[in-house]
Design a protein around this nucleic acid. Structure first.
Lengths: 133, 133
DNA sequence: TAACGGTATGTAATAATATAACGTTTTAGA
DNA sequence: TCTAAAACGTTATATTATTACATACCGTTA
């Protein structure tokens, strides 16, 4: 195997996969990613899922849980994803990350009565986007 | 096939599957449900998924998206699930439905700046529960 | 009561999503 | 330069979900 360098703290596969997600206008699914990076030598699901796991862990991408799809994080300073929110159009499937500091603050301060202390949340809104309304 | 009656507005399979989920202390996955209802004559995944889809649609159960698991709705008057929130323990996997009218109101009134009008949301909090803390 | 349409069912096959397990290579740092 | 942690490559398999099609049930209403 040829020598590998990390770029921007990302490994070779992580960078290939992040770049693909980052330039995509829409969330990408794991196997869509796989099909699109096979020419770059990534041949098998574990390679994709490992990169995705790591990218999620370090906050470069987020997973849209209700769609099993991945988007690049839009907040440039996002190091760790503790607070994610998305709006999802039920008609055209368009997905937008919501960056709203009030919302984020409100939810981060929310403490469940039952005595749980939260570290992280994910919020997904569904509706019709401007275009589809 | 023997004659079937709807009970509580649920069909035979829907009732079998709702009862199982409803008496479970923890969220159940589709195939766990399948294995547990085979003695009742439900043999194949589509039968389970169809019942689950319907039960979600009418608000009798909710899907925990990050876990691909299903729980019975706890708010007795829940007809349609427009607003769901859960707390998930990352250690013991315990999941609780959060019923907080302030939270629900806050999020229901939240309007994304980009011009989208929301119909529904799902919020999942992650952390450590009282016991695991 | 017969016929129609919508809903639910049963079944086989398969698609889509994700992980286990194992050995090797690369990388970063002491 | 040695080592431990991280990343990689590969095969196989597990888990989650849907397609497709034929049949049965149920409420309505003609």
């Amino acid at each position: 195997m040829t020598r590998m360098h990390k770029v921007n703290n990302l490994s070779k596969n992580q960078k290939i996969i992040f770049d693909l997600i980052n330039k995509s206008p829409e969330p990408l699914k794991a196997y869509t990613i796989l099909f699109n990076v096979q020419k770059k030598g990534i041949n098998a699901p574990p390679q994709v899922y490992r990169a995705l796991d790591k990218l999620v862990e370090i906050g470069k991408i987020h997973k849209i849980e209700s769609k099993n799809a991945f988007v690049a994080c839009k907040s440039s300073d996002c190091e760790i994803s503790k607070a994610t929110a998305f709006s999802i159009c039920e008609s055209c499937e368009m997905i937008d990350e919501i960056s709203d500091s009030k919302l984020s603050k409100y939810l981060s301060n929310f403490n469940h009565k039952k005595g749980m202390k939260f570290k992280r949340f994910n919020l997904e809104f569904f509706g019709l986007c401007k275009k589809c309304k």
